[in-house]
Design a protein around this nucleic acid. Structure first.
Lengths: 114, 114
DNA sequence: TCACAATACTTTGCGACGCTACATATGGAG
DNA sequence: CTCCATATGTAGCGTCGCAAAGTATTGTGA
């Protein structure tokens, strides 16, 4: 929860899709990927991630398969074609949004992506 | 509404405070400043901005004064000391947040600085 | 003169969604 | 045997952006 309020509103979908882009992952792993990939900043609770994954599946952006590993049932999610397209749109939207906000907030430091 | 969904969730306060930082403005002017300062990307409806300004005033982050210009009543808002402090926190939060999201969304194009 | 746009502010109510809290189940470490 | 990490799930709450509708004044064009 390193982020105070829910600044995430509306951005969670994009993040989940992005995390699944390199390859399928199950919910718990997704949460860890988000934490790792954001250097600990984004530590989303299960009550946020699982419902969001269900939502994305209902929307047809991801698909899921159950599997059992070491006696534990896990549900592995993967991007669909529509999901890949949606991710592209989310990225474009994020760029536009972040540029606009950064411009208005002014003096703030700029993100230095890879 | 150039932004489709409400990606703004949680970021509106920061934007309003930032717009008021250079000097007092009334609500209608705030909306235009946001549009101008974001190159047209952020075109917030009155139903978003006015309630948000009331909220910020209740929270003690801004203050307001009524004035009449050319027969029109307008309410001019200005930052309080607490508002200035809050703006600083919002900026820090935005930096952290945007860096994290940009890192996760990866390959996306980089924001072009002012 | 009359209609309409722009300026300027307000409020009701809906809907979306992140989060807290709680519930369930297994495997491994101490 | 207990505790923690792994792994998934749901109910309910609260926040807040937004559409929509309303009020009032000034300026403009037909």
């Amino acid at each position: 929860m390193a982020m105070r309020p829910e600044l995430l509103k509306g951005h969670v979908d994009a993040l989940l899709l992005a995390v699944l882009e390199p390859g399928p992952q199950h919910g718990y792993a997704v949460i860890e990927s988000l934490r790792a990939g954001s250097n600990g900043t984004l530590d989303l609770p299960t009550g946020t991630v699982y419902p969001a994954l269900h939502r994305l599946e209902r929307a047809g952006l991801i698909g899921s398969d159950w599997e059992t590993v070491g006696g534990r049932r896990r549900r592995t999610y993967h991007l669909t074609t529509a999901g890949r397209a949606a991710l592209g749109e989310h990225r474009a939207l994020w760029d536009e949004f972040s540029i606009a906000v950064s411009a208005l907030l002014g003096g703030g430091t700029k993100p230095a992506p890879a």
